[in-house]
């Protein structure tokens, strides 16, 4: 098995806009190992989210290959890909994407349900995670009654409930004020270190990027490692 949790080779992705083809990503080679963290920075529209979606196997590249623990995603059918995604990748989004009909605790458990690892231990693990993200007293709260920071904490707990190998976070502090954003970043980094999860963080914030092991920048479709 490969040392890399996620690896890409010569990844390219383009979109058609009108009559023009826009090359968003061109020949990207990227890899991340377990417990490692890296940031992806770039201007708006530079393809950061597209890259993250490709890493998560939610989108297909025009050319190149994506490997999860050494396995080429092209070799997986849709069902196998979905199953593998559920167990290998956790995702955190800028807009949290909590299910409004579910309480905080149920939102966390939803990922375990979808992954098919739901049992009493998972419930205990969800409680622990909510305690860990500082929401011990808000387990039964509906998302509508939570603040932005609290919702993102629930989303982080949800992303980690299935014990993923990699956490892909798409501007998780983008909708939060500076103070709350800082605390969310602290939490995210601490949890990834604790659980030895590879973290790929898409961010505009250079301070957050500087706290991670490696920093990458997407520019004109190319991924460049920062010094």
């Amino acid at each position: 098995m490969s040392d890399f949790v996620i690896e890409t080779k010569g990844l390219a992705r383009s979109f058609i806009s009108g009559n023009k083809s826009i090359e968003v990503l061109q020949g990207i080679d990227f890899s991340i190992t377990s417990g490692e963290s890296c940031s992806i920075q770039g201007e708006s529209g530079s393809g950061k989210s597209t890259f993250l979606h490709l890493l998560a196997g939610l989108d297909k590249p025009d050319s190149g290959a994506i490997f999860w623990e050494g396995q080429d995603l092209k070799t997986l059918n849709n069902v196998a890909l979905a199953k593998k995604r559920g167990s290998l990748v956790g995702m955190v989004f800028q807009s949290y994407y909590l299910v409004p009909e579910l309480r905080a605790f149920e939102n966390v458990l939803l990922a375990a349900r979808i992954t098919g690892i739901m049992n009493e231990d998972t419930e205990r693990e969800a409680e622990k995670l909510l305690d860990r993200v500082g929401l011990a007293g808000r387990k039964t709260s509906l998302p509508a009654t939570l603040s932005g920071g609290e919702r993102q904490r629930v989303a982080i707990a949800r992303a980690l409930i299935s014990n993923p190998k990699a956490l892909l976070a798409d501007e998780p502090t983008g909708n939060l004020d500076e103070e709350t954003g800082d605390s969310i970043m602290d939490l995210l980094l601490d949890l990834c270190i604790e659980k030895e999860v590879a973290l790929v963080l898409v961010t505009h914030n250079p301070t957050y990027a500087s706290r991670l092991d490696r920093a990458w920048r997407l520019k004109q479709g190319r991924l460049e490692e920062q010094g």
Partner: peptide
């Protein structure tokens, strides 16, 4: 729609 995308991101198949 976004929730459906979320389910897929969490490992749901289109059949589910």
């Amino acid at each position: 729609t976004r929730e459906i995308g979320l389910f897929t991101a969490m490992g749901a198949t289109s059949r589910q």
